[in-house]
Every structure is written in C-alpha cells, then in structure tokens.
C-alpha cells in the first residue's frame, strides 16, 4: 500500500501549497482594492449611518492598519504556522472558531448535494444512454444542458417560488428545521446532476459500444445484467473522475446558494468578508474552501483507484 501513502503525502504537500498561495493571494487582492480599508471595516461594523472619519480612525488605530502591508502579511504567516488565523476585523471573534461553525454547515450542505446528485444524475445518464436517440434521451439531455447553463442563483429562486411561495411545502430559507435542507441541497444537486447525467450518458454509451458488452450479450445475458455486471463499473470511472471537475461548480454554488438561503456557511461568510474587506476572515474562508477542495479531490482520486484497477497498477 505504499502507493496510497505516497498519494496521501502528495496531497498533504499540495494542501500546504494551496493554503499558502490562497492566503497570500487573498491578502494582496484585498490590499489592491481601491479605497480606504479602515472606512470599509467601520462601515461593516457600525453600519452606514455610524461610519465616520472618527470611527475609521479608531478602527485604524485598533487594528494597526497603518503598518506596512508586508508586516501585516508576515504577521499572518507567522500566526498561521501556529494554526492561528487571527480575529475577524468585523465581529472581533476568532476566525478559527467562526470557521469551525461555518465549515460544518458547508460540508453538510455539500455532501447532501453530492449525495442527492449521485442518486439522480448517473442513473438518469444510464437511462438516457439506453434510450439514446429516442425522445426521452433528447428531452432529458436538453433539459440537463439547460439546467447546467442556468446559474444556481436562478435555479434557487425558481425552486423557492414554486415550492415555498406557491405550494408552501418547504421553508424558503433558514437552517433551524430539517426541511430547511431541501431547497439549498436541491438547488446545488440539480446543477451537479445535470452535468453528471450527461457525463454518465456519454460514458455508458462508450461502454455499451465496446466489444466486452457485445460479448456479454452474445453469451446470452439479459439487458439488465449486461448493464449491471459489465457497464456500470466501467462507466463509473470517468463519471467519478469528472466529479473532481464538478467540485468547482459546487464551491461556486455554495457561495451563491448560502447567501440566497440564509445558510450560515463558509460561502456566506466569504461574500461578507469580501464586501467588508475583512482580510483575516477572507483569508480564513478562502483557505478553508481551498483545503476542502483539495480534500474532496483527494477523495475522488481514491474513489477512482478503488473503481479502476488500472490506476492502482499504473
């Protein structure tokens, strides 16, 4: 199992690089934004009515914002070596503690969306492939393409209008009931399932046209057994591998969906940190999302190894 160990070590190193790169990049991007940071932070803290030159000066003095940028970056790097992400410039709470709270919400939402999309997307893809060229396939593929083209923001609002406003069967937003999961999860899952159904369709079609399937049919297996025994696992390899690519969609979707549905996760915090120019919070949230991305990608890699023996022996 040395291969697994090395793969893990690779991923750890990668995570470390991601952490440094994301943190430093966020710092410089936030620094490069025009305008006065002290005023932005004061506005985020005290509201537009109370932000004033006096409040901004107090913020500047409190946070040492007039120190040179490289000193503040050096501080952050030293702190991160001690796993100290600093305190939010807006709320004054520890970034690490806030992230711990938010991370749970975001991971929960992401996993639920992935699970739901896995339940819907690939089976639909296989179904379309088996009906390739016929009406269900044409409608399904077109619908999936349309769904993927819509931003998750639009999908979310549409779902909210139908299921919360008109039918009133689910809560429109919030996070205090089990039903609150339905809309944000479904919004994310629909976008994911749209892509995974198309990828699964292509993969299944490719497998179905291969000689091994022709052989399975020749030896007299029924269509169900052909698909179950010989097509599913072969088709699964590219579908799971593609999941890694889809995670980008998930990360982007989480940012939008959390704001839309008042979900207290990292995406929500990231949006607010950008607006408020809360640099430690921005670095922390981007870092957490970056690491989450590496982690999920690693999981995808290991899943590919499990599914496809060729990877293991390569």
């Amino acid at each position: 199992m040395g291969g697994v160990g090395r793969a893990l070590a690779d991923r750890l190193l990668q995570a470390l690089f991601v952490a440094l790169l994301v943190g430093v990049l966020c710092f410089f991007l936030a620094e490069a934004l025009p305008g006065d940071q002290a005023f932005r932070i004061a506005a985020a803290r005290y509201g537009e009515d109370m932000v004033s030159g006096i409040a901004a000066d107090a913020v500047r003095a409190e946070l040492g914002l007039d120190r040179p940028a490289w000193l503040r970056l050096a501080d952050w790097l030293l702190n991160i070596a001690r796993i100290d992400l600093g305190v939010s410039l807006v709320s004054g709470e520890s970034v690490f503690e806030e992230l711990v709270h938010q991370l749970g919400s975001t991971i929960g939402l992401s996993l639920a969306a992935l699970a739901l999309s896995a339940l819907v997307g690939p089976p639909l893809g296989v179904f379309f492939a088996l009906r390739a060229g016929k009406l269900p396939d044409a409608i399904g593929t077109a619908a999936a393409a349309a769904l993927r083209a819509l931003p998750s923001f639009a999908v979310g609002i549409a779902l909210m209008l139908v299921f919360a406003s008109w039918l009133a069967v689910v809560p429109a937003a919030g996070y205090d009931q089990p039903q609150s999961w339905l809309l944000p999860t479904t919004t994310l899952a629909l976008g994911l399932a749209a892509t995974s159904s198309i990828v699964s369709r292509q993969a299944t079609l490719a497998v179905l046209q291969s000689s091994q399937i022709a052989f399975a049919r020749t030896k007299g297996l029924g269509e169900f057994d052909v698909v179950r025994r010989h097509a599913v696992r072969n088709a699964a390899a590219p579908v799971v591998a593609y999941l890694g690519v889809q995670l980008v969609y998930l990360v982007e979707g989480v940012v939008v969906v959390e704001s839309l549905f008042a979900w207290p996760g990292i995406g929500h915090a990231l949006v607010h940190a950008v607006i408020a120019r809360d640099i430690p919070m921005l670095q922390g949230t981007a870092l957490a999302m970056g690491l989450l991305f590496v982690l999920l990608n690693a999981a995808v890699d290991f899943a590919c190894r499990a599914i496809d023996p060729r990877v293991r022996h390569a």
């Binding site: 609002i157 909210m160 209008l161 919360a164 406003s165 008109w166 009133a168 689910v170 809560p171 429109a172 937003a173 919030g174 205090d176 704001s259 839309l260 549905f261 008042a262």
Partner: peptide, 20 residues
C-alpha cells in the same frame, strides 16, 4: 420569538408568502 437575518429580498418575500 426567533430572529433570522436574510439579506436577499427575494428570499424574505418567499418567507412571508410561505408563512415561514
């Protein structure tokens, strides 16, 4: 009573309509 901050106006509207 409970207080929930919902920044998006569309979402607040849906919450009023749905009785949430």
């Amino acid at each position: 009573a409970s207080y929930l901050a919902v920044t998006r106006g569309e979402t607040r509207t849906a919450m009023a309509e749905s009785g949430q």
